[in-house]
Amino acid sequence: MAQDFFNINDFSCGYDKFRLSEIGFSLQKGTFAGIIGPNGSGKTTLFRGITGTLPTLRGSIYLKGKNLKSIPLRSRAQNIAVVNQFVDAGQISVEDYVLMGRLPYHGRFRFFETHEDVSIAQKYMELTDIIQHKDKLMTELSGGEQQRAAIARALTQQPELLLLDEPTSHLDITHQVKILNLLQELNDETGLTVLMVIHDLNLASEYCDQLILFNEGKVFTQGKPEEVLTFDTIEQVYNTPVVTRTNPFSGKPVIFLISKKMMEKDN
């Protein structure tokens, strides 16, 4: 059996009142994967477990066959970059913020950035189309621009795995699609593995090749979008009846919600 690029095995972490249990899934290199599930199903908690913000209670996480615990923090940050839902970077210029993505490569007592650091940051600011704002403060940017800057910062870490926590949740459809297209391009062209928490099932279906559905702190099911996004599964997990169809352009499943009024009419 080929070694998985990223593997989570019987993993558990959490808080006093809520914890994940028996989480297990694996990603191949170059996958574009989405974590979906209702509010409070443990998506963000899992991210905190992967990044080490929450201590592991059980099981382990492997990156390229190595236990994540045995990888020092800085090399971990060279391999895995995180984009949080809220950027909240304060009064830092966009360029300085993106340059912080080079910190994992700096020695503990390194004081100055090199020209190489600056040109790497420059490259990803161009790629995320944020370069024209590089001298502005992060607080002066709109939500979508902040999100793009955060992605530029994450890419500046030059990771192999990019974790994103609802990167599109407070953006309009133009910006949602822009960011997801950007991620898709990166995934296609550089083989960057993407693992993204996403609420919108249709976007998840359209962009991801692998979906992991969370429910009540457990993996309910996982697989290709057409395997996961079925009427039965969604009804069970979300308690909401939906209609599923196939997108005529992409062949991926699409989900329609039905209002209560319509349902009563139907019956």
């Binding site: 905190r48 080490g52 913000t53 800085r74 060279q78 949080n84 830092i92 910190l103 503990r108 007592f109």
Partner: peptide, 21 residues
Amino acid sequence: LFVQPLNALRLGEEKALHLGI
């Protein structure tokens, strides 16, 4: 000697940790 963590801390403890600090 601690200027790097101080700078990383501008993003908060959790995000500093994501940067390996």
